[in-house]
Design a protein around this nucleic acid. Structure first.
Ligand SMILES: NC(=O)c1ccc[n+]([C@@H]2O[C@H](COP(=O)([O-])OP(=O)(O)OC[C@H]3O[C@@H](n4cnc5c(N)ncnc54)[C@H](O)[C@@H]3O)[C@@H](O)[C@H]2O)c1
Ligand SMILES: NC(=O)c1ccc[n+]([C@@H]2O[C@H](COP(=O)([O-])OP(=O)(O)OC[C@H]3O[C@@H](n4cnc5c(N)ncnc54)[C@H](O)[C@@H]3O)[C@@H](O)[C@H]2O)c1
Lengths: 206, 206
DNA sequence: CCCTTGCTGTGAATGATTTCACGGTGTGAA
DNA sequence: TTCACACCGTGAAATCATTCACAGCAAGGG
Protein backbone atom coordinates (compact mmCIF):
# COMPACT_ATOMS: atom_id res chain seq x y z
CA UNK A 1 0.00 0.00 0.00
CA UNK A 2 2.02 2.93 1.25
CA UNK A 3 5.45 2.26 -0.24
CA UNK A 4 6.58 5.82 0.21
CA UNK A 5 4.83 9.07 -0.50
CA UNK A 6 6.98 12.17 -0.61
CA UNK A 7 6.32 15.26 1.45
CA UNK A 8 5.49 17.15 -1.71
CA UNK A 9 2.89 14.59 -2.70
CA UNK A 10 1.30 14.81 0.73
CA UNK A 11 1.02 18.58 0.39
CA UNK A 12 -0.54 18.27 -3.04
CA UNK A 13 -2.95 15.60 -1.88
CA UNK A 14 -4.10 17.97 0.83
CA UNK A 15 -4.62 20.64 -1.82
CA UNK A 16 -6.48 18.22 -4.06
CA UNK A 17 -8.77 17.35 -1.22
CA UNK A 18 -9.64 20.94 -0.52
CA UNK A 19 -10.45 21.52 -4.15
CA UNK A 20 -12.47 18.33 -4.37
CA UNK A 21 -14.54 19.39 -1.37
CA UNK A 22 -15.35 22.67 -3.09
CA UNK A 23 -16.08 20.92 -6.36
CA UNK A 24 -18.33 18.42 -4.65
CA UNK A 25 -20.20 21.22 -2.90
CA UNK A 26 -20.84 22.86 -6.24
CA UNK A 27 -22.21 19.64 -7.70
CA UNK A 28 -19.31 17.98 -9.52
CA UNK A 29 -19.54 14.24 -9.50
CA UNK A 30 -16.63 13.37 -11.79
CA UNK A 31 -13.45 15.28 -12.57
CA UNK A 32 -10.52 14.74 -14.93
CA UNK A 33 -6.93 14.90 -13.79
CA UNK A 34 -6.46 18.14 -15.69
CA UNK A 35 -9.38 19.75 -13.85
CA UNK A 36 -7.71 18.98 -10.55
CA UNK A 37 -4.39 20.11 -11.99
CA UNK A 38 -5.53 23.55 -13.11
CA UNK A 39 -7.31 24.11 -9.82
CA UNK A 40 -4.17 23.34 -7.84
CA UNK A 41 -1.49 24.79 -10.14
CA UNK A 42 0.11 21.56 -11.21
CA UNK A 43 0.05 19.21 -14.20
CA UNK A 44 -2.35 16.44 -15.09
CA UNK A 45 0.48 13.91 -15.09
CA UNK A 46 1.45 15.02 -11.61
CA UNK A 47 -2.08 14.55 -10.34
CA UNK A 48 -2.27 11.08 -11.83
CA UNK A 49 1.09 10.15 -10.27
CA UNK A 50 0.03 11.39 -6.86
CA UNK A 51 -3.27 9.56 -7.01
CA UNK A 52 -1.50 6.46 -8.22
CA UNK A 53 0.69 6.63 -5.12
CA UNK A 54 -2.35 6.26 -2.89
CA UNK A 55 -3.77 3.70 -5.32
CA UNK A 56 -6.91 5.50 -6.24
CA UNK A 57 -8.04 5.21 -9.80
CA UNK A 58 -10.32 6.82 -12.28
CA UNK A 59 -11.86 5.77 -15.53
CA UNK A 60 -10.75 6.92 -18.95
CA UNK A 61 -14.13 8.22 -19.92
CA UNK A 62 -15.36 10.06 -16.85
CA UNK A 63 -12.18 10.66 -14.91
CA UNK A 64 -12.17 10.42 -11.15
CA UNK A 65 -15.26 9.95 -9.06
CA UNK A 66 -15.14 12.87 -6.65
CA UNK A 67 -16.71 11.18 -3.65
CA UNK A 68 -14.55 8.08 -3.99
CA UNK A 69 -11.45 10.16 -4.44
CA UNK A 70 -12.22 12.19 -1.36
CA UNK A 71 -12.61 9.00 0.57
CA UNK A 72 -9.26 7.67 -0.68
CA UNK A 73 -7.37 10.86 0.05
CA UNK A 74 -8.90 11.24 3.47
CA UNK A 75 -8.21 7.63 4.25
CA UNK A 76 -4.60 8.22 3.34
CA UNK A 77 -4.10 11.62 4.99
CA UNK A 78 -6.19 11.37 8.10
CA UNK A 79 -5.68 9.44 11.25
CA UNK A 80 -8.37 6.84 11.99
CA UNK A 81 -9.65 9.04 14.83
CA UNK A 82 -9.54 12.85 14.99
CA UNK A 83 -6.13 14.13 16.09
CA UNK A 84 -5.87 16.55 18.93
CA UNK A 85 -3.61 19.56 18.71
CA UNK A 86 -2.04 21.81 21.32
CA UNK A 87 -1.62 25.54 20.73
CA UNK A 88 1.20 27.25 22.61
CA UNK A 89 1.22 31.04 22.97
CA UNK A 90 -2.09 32.91 22.95
CA UNK A 91 -0.84 36.28 21.73
CA UNK A 92 -2.06 38.14 18.67
CA UNK A 93 -1.21 35.43 16.24
CA UNK A 94 -2.12 32.53 18.48
CA UNK A 95 -5.63 33.83 19.07
CA UNK A 96 -6.14 34.60 15.37
CA UNK A 97 -5.01 31.12 14.42
CA UNK A 98 -7.20 29.56 17.05
CA UNK A 99 -10.27 31.45 15.87
CA UNK A 100 -9.45 30.56 12.30
CA UNK A 101 -9.17 26.83 12.87
CA UNK A 102 -12.31 26.39 14.94
CA UNK A 103 -14.60 24.12 12.96
CA UNK A 104 -12.44 24.22 9.87
CA UNK A 105 -10.74 20.85 10.24
CA UNK A 106 -13.09 18.15 11.42
CA UNK A 107 -10.26 15.76 12.11
CA UNK A 108 -7.83 18.19 13.72
CA UNK A 109 -9.00 19.85 16.91
CA UNK A 110 -7.19 22.27 19.12
CA UNK A 111 -8.02 20.78 22.49
CA UNK A 112 -5.33 22.21 24.73
CA UNK A 113 -3.81 25.66 24.82
CA UNK A 114 -0.91 26.92 26.87
CA UNK A 115 0.61 30.24 27.79
CA UNK A 116 2.99 31.54 30.39
CA UNK A 117 1.17 34.77 31.13
CA UNK A 118 -1.07 34.43 34.22
CA UNK A 119 -3.47 36.91 32.64
CA UNK A 120 -4.18 34.35 29.94
CA UNK A 121 -4.05 31.07 31.81
CA UNK A 122 -7.05 30.02 33.86
CA UNK A 123 -9.35 31.63 31.32
CA UNK A 124 -11.53 30.20 28.64
CA UNK A 125 -10.50 31.16 25.12
CA UNK A 126 -12.89 30.00 22.44
CA UNK A 127 -14.46 27.81 25.04
CA UNK A 128 -11.16 26.10 25.74
CA UNK A 129 -9.24 26.50 28.98
CA UNK A 130 -5.75 27.88 28.73
CA UNK A 131 -3.22 26.07 30.87
CA UNK A 132 0.07 27.17 32.27
CA UNK A 133 2.96 26.07 30.12
CA UNK A 134 4.43 24.09 32.99
CA UNK A 135 1.52 21.71 32.86
CA UNK A 136 2.45 20.80 29.30
CA UNK A 137 4.57 17.83 30.22
CA UNK A 138 1.75 16.23 32.12
CA UNK A 139 -1.22 17.15 29.97
CA UNK A 140 0.00 16.35 26.48
CA UNK A 141 0.72 12.68 27.11
CA UNK A 142 -2.50 12.12 29.05
CA UNK A 143 -4.54 13.67 26.22
CA UNK A 144 -2.66 11.68 23.58
CA UNK A 145 -1.56 14.84 21.81
CA UNK A 146 1.13 14.43 19.21
CA UNK A 147 0.95 17.77 17.40
CA UNK A 148 1.41 21.39 18.40
CA UNK A 149 1.09 24.85 16.90
CA UNK A 150 3.76 27.17 18.21
CA UNK A 151 2.99 30.90 18.41
CA UNK A 152 5.33 32.07 21.14
CA UNK A 153 7.99 34.77 20.77
CA UNK A 154 11.06 33.73 18.80
CA UNK A 155 13.22 33.88 21.91
CA UNK A 156 11.05 31.26 23.63
CA UNK A 157 10.53 28.96 20.69
CA UNK A 158 13.43 26.57 21.27
CA UNK A 159 12.76 26.26 24.98
CA UNK A 160 9.13 25.46 24.39
CA UNK A 161 10.05 23.08 21.57
CA UNK A 162 12.23 21.11 23.95
CA UNK A 163 9.32 20.85 26.34
CA UNK A 164 7.05 19.73 23.52
CA UNK A 165 9.46 17.05 22.41
CA UNK A 166 9.79 15.80 25.96
CA UNK A 167 6.00 15.78 26.15
CA UNK A 168 5.86 13.40 23.17
CA UNK A 169 4.93 15.83 20.41
CA UNK A 170 6.03 14.60 16.97
CA UNK A 171 4.73 17.35 14.67
CA UNK A 172 5.11 21.10 15.14
CA UNK A 173 3.75 23.97 13.08
CA UNK A 174 6.10 26.79 14.03
CA UNK A 175 5.31 30.45 13.43
CA UNK A 176 8.42 31.85 15.07
CA UNK A 177 11.12 33.02 12.66
CA UNK A 178 13.77 30.67 13.96
CA UNK A 179 15.22 27.29 13.13
CA UNK A 180 14.07 24.73 15.65
CA UNK A 181 16.34 21.89 16.66
CA UNK A 182 14.48 18.66 17.18
CA UNK A 183 15.48 15.00 17.26
CA UNK A 184 14.93 12.88 14.18
CA UNK A 185 11.36 11.68 13.96
CA UNK A 186 9.90 15.04 14.91
CA UNK A 187 8.47 16.94 11.96
CA UNK A 188 8.74 20.72 11.93
CA UNK A 189 6.84 22.93 9.51
CA UNK A 190 7.89 26.54 9.84
CA UNK A 191 5.50 29.18 8.54
CA UNK A 192 8.05 31.83 7.85
CA UNK A 193 6.36 35.10 6.90
CA UNK A 194 9.60 36.98 6.49
CA UNK A 195 11.24 34.49 4.21
CA UNK A 196 8.10 34.26 2.10
CA UNK A 197 7.86 37.99 1.81
CA UNK A 198 11.48 38.34 0.82
CA UNK A 199 11.14 35.57 -1.71
CA UNK A 200 8.10 37.20 -3.25
CA UNK A 201 9.91 40.53 -3.25
CA UNK A 202 12.79 38.96 -5.12
CA UNK A 203 10.69 37.32 -7.79
CA UNK A 204 8.44 40.33 -8.19
CA UNK A 205 11.46 41.93 -9.83
CA UNK A 206 12.71 38.97 -11.86
CA UNK B 1 26.47 37.42 -12.91
CA UNK B 2 23.13 35.95 -12.11
CA UNK B 3 22.91 33.04 -14.51
CA UNK B 4 20.00 31.46 -12.73
CA UNK B 5 19.28 31.00 -9.06
CA UNK B 6 16.49 28.63 -8.16
CA UNK B 7 13.59 29.56 -5.95
CA UNK B 8 14.86 27.20 -3.30
CA UNK B 9 18.24 28.87 -3.27
CA UNK B 10 16.62 32.27 -2.89
CA UNK B 11 14.69 31.02 0.12
CA UNK B 12 17.81 29.59 1.68
CA UNK B 13 19.79 32.75 1.03
CA UNK B 14 17.12 34.67 2.86
CA UNK B 15 17.48 32.24 5.77
CA UNK B 16 21.25 32.52 5.73
CA UNK B 17 20.95 36.26 5.91
CA UNK B 18 18.71 36.16 8.93
CA UNK B 19 21.10 33.83 10.71
CA UNK B 20 24.11 35.95 9.74
CA UNK B 21 22.46 39.04 11.15
CA UNK B 22 21.95 37.25 14.46
CA UNK B 23 25.48 35.90 14.40
CA UNK B 24 26.91 39.30 13.63
CA UNK B 25 24.91 40.84 16.48
CA UNK B 26 26.41 38.30 18.84
CA UNK B 27 29.91 39.08 17.72
CA UNK B 28 30.80 36.54 15.04
CA UNK B 29 33.16 37.87 12.43
CA UNK B 30 33.87 34.70 10.43
CA UNK B 31 31.76 31.58 9.96
CA UNK B 32 32.29 28.26 8.21
CA UNK B 33 29.79 26.82 5.80
CA UNK B 34 28.86 24.14 8.30
CA UNK B 35 28.03 26.76 10.93
CA UNK B 36 25.57 28.34 8.55
CA UNK B 37 24.32 24.92 7.57
CA UNK B 38 23.47 23.71 11.06
CA UNK B 39 21.79 27.01 11.87
CA UNK B 40 19.54 26.75 8.83
CA UNK B 41 18.93 23.00 8.70
CA UNK B 42 20.86 22.25 5.54
CA UNK B 43 24.26 20.86 4.56
CA UNK B 44 27.62 22.58 4.28
CA UNK B 45 27.86 21.63 0.60
CA UNK B 46 24.47 23.21 0.01
CA UNK B 47 25.54 26.43 1.65
CA UNK B 48 28.71 26.59 -0.44
CA UNK B 49 26.73 25.92 -3.62
CA UNK B 50 24.22 28.64 -2.82
CA UNK B 51 26.94 31.14 -2.02
CA UNK B 52 28.79 30.17 -5.17
CA UNK B 53 25.66 31.00 -7.14
CA UNK B 54 25.82 34.58 -5.96
CA UNK B 55 29.60 34.52 -6.38
CA UNK B 56 30.56 35.24 -2.84
CA UNK B 57 33.56 33.45 -1.50
CA UNK B 58 35.25 32.56 1.70
CA UNK B 59 38.74 31.52 2.62
CA UNK B 60 39.80 28.02 3.51
CA UNK B 61 41.20 28.97 6.87
CA UNK B 62 38.65 31.35 8.31
CA UNK B 63 35.54 30.58 6.30
CA UNK B 64 33.20 33.37 5.28
CA UNK B 65 33.52 36.93 6.47
CA UNK B 66 30.11 37.64 7.95
CA UNK B 67 29.89 41.32 7.05
CA UNK B 68 31.02 40.72 3.47
CA UNK B 69 28.65 37.84 3.09
CA UNK B 70 25.75 39.90 4.39
CA UNK B 71 26.61 42.54 1.86
CA UNK B 72 26.70 40.00 -0.99
CA UNK B 73 23.45 38.36 -0.04
CA UNK B 74 21.67 41.65 0.44
CA UNK B 75 23.03 42.92 -2.82
CA UNK B 76 21.63 39.86 -4.49
CA UNK B 77 18.27 39.68 -2.71
CA UNK B 78 17.36 43.30 -2.26
CA UNK B 79 16.25 45.89 -4.73
CA UNK B 80 18.59 48.88 -5.04
CA UNK B 81 16.02 51.04 -3.26
CA UNK B 82 13.53 49.90 -0.60
CA UNK B 83 10.50 48.19 -2.12
CA UNK B 84 7.06 49.34 -1.17
CA UNK B 85 4.35 46.86 -0.36
CA UNK B 86 0.57 47.10 -0.33
CA UNK B 87 -1.50 45.24 2.26
CA UNK B 88 -5.04 44.35 1.26
CA UNK B 89 -7.60 43.42 3.90
CA UNK B 90 -7.22 44.81 7.41
CA UNK B 91 -9.06 42.13 9.33
CA UNK B 92 -7.66 40.07 12.19
CA UNK B 93 -4.81 38.61 10.23
CA UNK B 94 -4.08 41.73 8.19
CA UNK B 95 -3.65 43.88 11.27
CA UNK B 96 -1.50 41.25 13.00
CA UNK B 97 0.72 40.96 9.95
CA UNK B 98 0.98 44.71 9.64
CA UNK B 99 2.01 45.13 13.26
CA UNK B 100 4.48 42.31 12.88
CA UNK B 101 6.25 43.74 9.85
CA UNK B 102 6.60 47.28 11.10
CA UNK B 103 10.31 47.97 11.39
CA UNK B 104 11.28 44.37 10.75
CA UNK B 105 12.29 44.65 7.11
CA UNK B 106 14.24 47.81 6.40
CA UNK B 107 13.97 47.32 2.66
CA UNK B 108 10.35 46.24 2.48
CA UNK B 109 7.81 48.74 3.73
CA UNK B 110 4.07 48.49 3.83
CA UNK B 111 3.17 51.92 2.52
CA UNK B 112 -0.37 51.46 1.31
CA UNK B 113 -3.22 49.52 2.83
CA UNK B 114 -6.65 48.84 1.41
CA UNK B 115 -9.95 47.54 2.64
CA UNK B 116 -13.51 47.57 1.43
CA UNK B 117 -15.13 48.21 4.80
CA UNK B 118 -15.91 51.93 5.28
CA UNK B 119 -15.30 51.48 9.00
CA UNK B 120 -11.66 50.75 8.21
CA UNK B 121 -10.95 53.06 5.31
CA UNK B 122 -10.26 56.73 6.01
CA UNK B 123 -8.52 55.78 9.24
CA UNK B 124 -4.91 55.60 10.23
CA UNK B 125 -3.70 52.11 11.07
CA UNK B 126 -0.16 51.94 12.39
CA UNK B 127 0.20 55.51 11.19
CA UNK B 128 -0.71 54.52 7.67
CA UNK B 129 -3.93 55.61 5.99
CA UNK B 130 -6.24 52.83 4.80
CA UNK B 131 -7.66 53.43 1.35
CA UNK B 132 -10.75 52.09 -0.28
CA UNK B 133 -10.01 49.10 -2.45
CA UNK B 134 -11.35 50.93 -5.51
CA UNK B 135 -8.47 53.36 -5.36
CA UNK B 136 -6.04 50.47 -5.79
CA UNK B 137 -5.81 50.78 -9.54
CA UNK B 138 -4.76 54.40 -9.31
CA UNK B 139 -2.57 54.35 -6.24
CA UNK B 140 -0.37 51.32 -6.82
CA UNK B 141 1.11 52.50 -10.11
CA UNK B 142 1.67 56.05 -8.86
CA UNK B 143 3.49 54.74 -5.79
CA UNK B 144 5.55 52.30 -7.84
CA UNK B 145 4.27 49.35 -5.83
CA UNK B 146 4.97 45.94 -7.27
CA UNK B 147 4.20 43.69 -4.30
CA UNK B 148 1.15 42.99 -2.21
CA UNK B 149 0.16 41.00 0.86
CA UNK B 150 -3.33 39.61 0.55
CA UNK B 151 -5.38 39.05 3.72
CA UNK B 152 -8.93 39.26 2.42
CA UNK B 153 -11.56 36.51 2.77
CA UNK B 154 -11.04 33.55 0.47
CA UNK B 155 -14.15 34.45 -1.52
CA UNK B 156 -12.68 37.83 -2.43
CA UNK B 157 -9.11 36.74 -3.08
CA UNK B 158 -9.36 36.15 -6.84
CA UNK B 159 -11.29 39.35 -7.48
CA UNK B 160 -8.74 41.38 -5.58
CA UNK B 161 -5.89 39.52 -7.28
CA UNK B 162 -7.25 40.53 -10.66
CA UNK B 163 -7.29 44.13 -9.52
CA UNK B 164 -3.73 43.81 -8.23
CA UNK B 165 -2.50 42.37 -11.49
CA UNK B 166 -4.21 45.14 -13.42
CA UNK B 167 -2.57 47.61 -11.04
CA UNK B 168 0.86 46.29 -11.99
CA UNK B 169 1.61 44.05 -8.98
CA UNK B 170 4.08 41.28 -9.81
CA UNK B 171 4.48 39.54 -6.46
CA UNK B 172 1.73 38.45 -4.06
CA UNK B 173 1.93 36.87 -0.62
CA UNK B 174 -1.45 35.27 -0.29
CA UNK B 175 -2.96 34.15 3.02
CA UNK B 176 -6.29 33.03 1.66
CA UNK B 177 -6.66 29.25 1.32
CA UNK B 178 -7.29 29.33 -2.42
CA UNK B 179 -5.36 28.91 -5.63
CA UNK B 180 -4.91 32.26 -7.32
CA UNK B 181 -4.89 32.49 -11.08
CA UNK B 182 -2.39 35.01 -12.36
CA UNK B 183 -0.68 35.61 -15.71
CA UNK B 184 2.86 34.35 -16.18
CA UNK B 185 5.37 36.76 -14.71
CA UNK B 186 3.38 37.28 -11.53
CA UNK B 187 4.78 35.40 -8.54
CA UNK B 188 2.38 34.03 -5.95
CA UNK B 189 3.46 32.74 -2.57
CA UNK B 190 0.57 31.20 -0.69
CA UNK B 191 0.90 30.88 3.07
CA UNK B 192 -1.43 27.99 3.54
CA UNK B 193 -2.04 27.31 7.22
CA UNK B 194 -4.42 24.45 6.57
CA UNK B 195 -2.16 22.58 4.21
CA UNK B 196 0.79 23.01 6.56
CA UNK B 197 -1.21 21.78 9.50
CA UNK B 198 -2.45 18.76 7.62
CA UNK B 199 1.05 17.98 6.41
CA UNK B 200 2.44 18.20 9.92
CA UNK B 201 -0.43 16.06 11.17
CA UNK B 202 0.40 13.43 8.59
CA UNK B 203 4.10 13.28 9.36
CA UNK B 204 3.55 13.41 13.10
CA UNK B 205 2.24 9.90 12.67
CA UNK B 206 4.77 8.56 10.17
C1' DC C 1 60.73 24.90 6.36
C1' DC C 2 57.73 21.18 5.82
C1' DC C 3 53.98 18.54 7.25
C1' DT C 4 49.27 18.13 8.87
C1' DT C 5 44.78 19.76 9.13
C1' DG C 6 40.51 21.34 7.71
C1' DC C 7 38.44 24.44 4.94
C1' DT C 8 36.57 26.28 0.13
C1' DG C 9 35.16 25.79 -4.69
C1' DT C 10 33.49 22.77 -7.94
C1' DG C 11 33.08 18.74 -11.45
C1' DA C 12 30.88 14.56 -11.24
C1' DA C 13 27.68 11.35 -9.25
C1' DT C 14 23.65 10.51 -7.15
C1' DG C 15 18.99 11.06 -5.89
C1' DA C 16 14.41 13.14 -6.21
C1' DT C 17 10.77 14.92 -8.83
C1' DT C 18 8.43 15.99 -12.89
C1' DT C 19 7.27 15.36 -17.57
C1' DC C 20 6.89 12.66 -21.72
C1' DA C 21 4.77 9.41 -24.40
C1' DC C 22 2.09 5.71 -25.45
C1' DG C 23 -0.73 1.30 -24.88
C1' DG C 24 -5.24 0.18 -23.31
C1' DT C 25 -9.99 1.38 -22.73
C1' DG C 26 -14.73 3.20 -22.44
C1' DT C 27 -17.84 6.49 -24.94
C1' DG C 28 -20.41 8.68 -28.28
C1' DA C 29 -21.22 9.66 -33.09
C1' DA C 30 -21.91 8.10 -37.77
C1' DT D 1 -20.77 -1.95 -35.78
C1' DT D 2 -16.85 0.76 -36.39
C1' DC D 3 -14.14 4.72 -35.82
C1' DA D 4 -12.19 8.67 -33.63
C1' DC D 5 -11.38 10.68 -29.50
C1' DA D 6 -9.83 11.81 -24.94
C1' DC D 7 -8.31 10.16 -20.86
C1' DC D 8 -6.04 6.98 -17.39
C1' DG D 9 -2.01 4.31 -15.76
C1' DT D 10 2.73 3.93 -16.02
C1' DG D 11 7.63 2.82 -17.77
C1' DA D 12 11.11 5.60 -19.43
C1' DA D 13 13.30 9.98 -20.09
C1' DA D 14 14.36 14.40 -18.71
C1' DT D 15 14.97 17.84 -15.55
C1' DC D 16 16.08 19.66 -11.22
C1' DA D 17 18.40 19.50 -6.65
C1' DT D 18 21.58 17.69 -3.46
C1' DT D 19 25.60 15.29 -2.04
C1' DC D 20 30.12 13.37 -2.80
C1' DA D 21 34.76 13.77 -3.21
C1' DC D 22 38.85 15.86 -4.12
C1' DA D 23 42.31 19.45 -5.79
C1' DG D 24 44.13 23.47 -3.98
C1' DC D 25 45.24 26.44 -0.40
C1' DA D 26 46.14 29.02 4.04
C1' DA D 27 47.46 28.58 8.80
C1' DG D 28 49.62 26.59 12.76
C1' DG D 29 52.85 23.45 14.94
C1' DG D 30 57.08 21.28 15.37
N1 LIG E 1 1.76 38.67 14.78
C1 LIG E 1 2.07 38.28 13.56
O1 LIG E 1 1.45 38.66 12.57
C2 LIG E 1 3.17 37.33 13.34
C3 LIG E 1 3.55 37.06 12.03
C4 LIG E 1 4.57 36.16 11.79
C5 LIG E 1 5.18 35.55 12.83
N2 LIG E 1 4.84 35.80 14.08
C6 LIG E 1 5.54 35.09 15.15
O2 LIG E 1 4.58 34.44 15.94
C7 LIG E 1 5.00 34.45 17.29
C8 LIG E 1 3.93 35.10 18.14
O3 LIG E 1 3.65 36.39 17.66
P1 LIG E 1 2.57 37.30 18.38
O4 LIG E 1 2.47 38.53 17.57
O5 LIG E 1 1.33 36.53 18.65
O6 LIG E 1 3.32 37.63 19.76
P2 LIG E 1 2.64 37.95 21.16
O7 LIG E 1 3.71 38.52 22.02
O8 LIG E 1 1.38 38.69 20.96
O9 LIG E 1 2.24 36.54 21.74
C9 LIG E 1 3.14 35.64 22.32
C10 LIG E 1 2.41 34.83 23.39
O10 LIG E 1 3.28 33.78 23.85
C11 LIG E 1 3.21 33.76 25.28
N3 LIG E 1 4.47 33.20 25.78
C12 LIG E 1 5.65 33.81 25.94
N4 LIG E 1 6.57 32.96 26.41
C13 LIG E 1 5.95 31.79 26.57
C14 LIG E 1 6.37 30.51 27.03
N5 LIG E 1 7.63 30.27 27.39
N6 LIG E 1 5.46 29.54 27.05
C15 LIG E 1 4.20 29.75 26.67
N7 LIG E 1 3.73 30.93 26.23
C16 LIG E 1 4.61 31.93 26.18
C17 LIG E 1 3.00 35.19 25.68
O11 LIG E 1 2.42 35.26 26.96
C18 LIG E 1 2.03 35.67 24.60
O12 LIG E 1 0.71 35.41 24.94
C19 LIG E 1 6.32 35.19 17.31
O13 LIG E 1 7.38 34.26 17.25
C20 LIG E 1 6.30 35.98 16.05
O14 LIG E 1 7.60 36.20 15.54
C21 LIG E 1 3.82 36.69 14.37
N1 LIG F 1 -7.19 34.75 10.98
C1 LIG F 1 -6.30 33.78 10.77
O1 LIG F 1 -5.61 33.34 11.69
C2 LIG F 1 -6.09 33.22 9.41
C3 LIG F 1 -5.27 32.13 9.29
C4 LIG F 1 -5.02 31.61 8.03
C5 LIG F 1 -5.60 32.18 6.94
N2 LIG F 1 -6.41 33.23 7.07
C6 LIG F 1 -6.98 33.82 5.87
O2 LIG F 1 -6.67 35.19 5.84
C7 LIG F 1 -7.73 35.90 5.26
C8 LIG F 1 -8.21 36.97 6.22
O3 LIG F 1 -8.54 36.39 7.45
P1 LIG F 1 -9.09 37.28 8.64
O4 LIG F 1 -9.27 36.35 9.79
O5 LIG F 1 -8.22 38.45 8.82
O6 LIG F 1 -10.52 37.72 8.09
P2 LIG F 1 -11.32 39.06 8.43
O7 LIG F 1 -12.71 38.85 7.97
O8 LIG F 1 -11.05 39.45 9.85
O9 LIG F 1 -10.64 40.17 7.53
C9 LIG F 1 -10.86 40.32 6.17
C10 LIG F 1 -10.73 41.79 5.83
O10 LIG F 1 -10.79 41.93 4.41
C11 LIG F 1 -11.67 43.00 4.11
N3 LIG F 1 -12.23 42.80 2.77
C12 LIG F 1 -13.26 41.99 2.42
N4 LIG F 1 -13.47 42.06 1.10
C13 LIG F 1 -12.56 42.92 0.60
C14 LIG F 1 -12.28 43.40 -0.70
N5 LIG F 1 -12.96 42.97 -1.76
N6 LIG F 1 -11.28 44.28 -0.84
C15 LIG F 1 -10.57 44.70 0.23
N7 LIG F 1 -10.79 44.30 1.48
C16 LIG F 1 -11.78 43.40 1.66
C17 LIG F 1 -12.71 42.99 5.20
O11 LIG F 1 -13.31 44.28 5.32
C18 LIG F 1 -11.85 42.64 6.41
O12 LIG F 1 -11.28 43.79 6.99
C19 LIG F 1 -8.81 34.89 4.94
O13 LIG F 1 -8.67 34.50 3.58
C20 LIG F 1 -8.46 33.73 5.82
O14 LIG F 1 -8.86 32.52 5.23
C21 LIG F 1 -6.67 33.79 8.30
Amino acid sequence: MSVHVSERSVRRLSLYRRFLLHAQASGSCYLFSHDIATATRTSAAQVRRDLMAISSSGTASRGYHVADLLKSISHFLDAPAPQHVALIGLGNLGRAVFAYFVGRHPNLRITLTFDIDPAKTCRLINGCPCHNIHELNDLCPTHGIRMAILTVPATEAQTVTDMLVRGGIRGIVNFAPVTLYVPVGVFVETMDFSISLETAAFFSRA
